[in-house]
Design a protein around this nucleic acid. Structure first.
Lengths: 196, 196
DNA sequence: TATAAAAACTAATAAGCATTAGTTTTGTAA
DNA sequence: TTACAAAACTAATGCTTATTAGTTTTTATA
């Protein structure tokens, strides 16, 4: 049937996608060549096309997998009755864990979405814009409920999302500090500030 | 002497560099072609080489101009006697203003440095690492002086730098909110938190 | 063992790239 | 107006790219 048996849970296509994420992360989508990807996978470049449609399709797969993960999690918190602070904290923690556990793919989705082709580019941006709006609503709710300070909700959401995204720079220090401390300190900083 | 007179303060080389920053920002360094850059400038591609050495050189110019601006500002605050909180606030405000006033170039320095060639790549990373370390020292001083909470200084610096960097997403909302409100709200959030 | 499909391979295509060489145009200063 | 230099142009080079076509090898099943 197939030449190389898929791993326990990963088809050859999955292997290609994962290698693509790693390669796109380290060289950027445009600079990464299908020859390099093929070498990482262990075949000649044209053989890749037995499993995938195109280079673009790889980027699409990565970007929408990540976008859907965030959207799904937000959906799952939509019906919780907890306080705004609790929901916000949950969401921040999910972002941090996504960054730490799926680094390559999240990095690529964050940095290389620009190279998506239409209509995927538009869809991706729409989905992200919609996600941001839902977070802003959450923030506005918390402000009206007096759980959050009176501040511009756009700025607050931007600050939080950007800070978490910055974990991409953290990879180098991974060994020096536990994920739990990192997660807790960042959540505290974003919710309660740094000054005493 | 020259075919096209330079603008009041900008030589033709400066015009090319500014156009390169805009192009590299919107398409990425690798995807941006010298043909496109030439079209933006209003000449044929080979004519660019009467003014610049190479495509790489353009990226180098942009990246180090930005890096030096940040380093110089940090130098200038080194001898101020003020409290840690004040110095940190000044630095955050400088970062925010750099993002708003020199968006294209800062964006390129943040996103495209990866495509620098050696030895510029190594130098750039060294300079950035050194800058981060100086900020971490500042943070540690503030913690020891009990101005800042007891937290991991790496995480705090990362959170602040990343949040500010995220202003790159803000460009679209520029018209809806004044720079001053943005700056003040973000500084407050990062120093004092969002929860009441 | 024979059959058929899946997936590997080699070779080739057509396009795009940064850059160089050589020439012509343009603008300034004598 | 003539001479010179700066900067534009056209044409060409050599390289890299994603992808397709056509063929051979491998693998699983009957």
């Amino acid at each position: 049937m197939a030449r190389i048996k898929p791993g326990k849970n990963a088809s050859k296509k999955d292997v290609i996608i994962q290698n693509a994420a790693t390669l796109f992360k380290s060289k950027g989508f445009s600079s990464a060549s299908m020859r390099e990807l093929a070498e990482a996978v262990g075949v000649e470049a044209p053989s890749l096309y037995n499993h995938i449609g195109s280079k673009s399709e790889l980027l699409q797969g990565i970007c929408f997998k990540v976008a859907n993960a965030f959207t799904s999690y937000l959906d799952s918190t939509e019906n919780t009755l907890g306080k705004y602070t609790e929901r916000l904290e949950q969401i921040i923690r999910f972002h941090i864990r996504m960054m730490l556990d799926n680094f390559d793919e999240v990095y690529v989705a964050n940095h290389e979405w620009k190279h998506l082709k239409e209509p995927y580019l538009s869809n991706f941006l729409l989905q992200r814009r919609s996600y941001e709006k839902r977070l802003i609503s959450l923030m506005e709710g918390g402000i009206m409920a007096k759980e959050f300070k009176h501040t511009n909700p756009y700025v607050a959401v931007l600050t939080i999302l950007s800070a978490v995204r910055g974990l991409e720079f953290w990879q180098q220090h991974k060994k020096n500090i536990s994920s739990q401390v990192l997660e807790d300190d960042m959540v505290n900083h974003l919710l309660k500030g740094i000054t005493k």
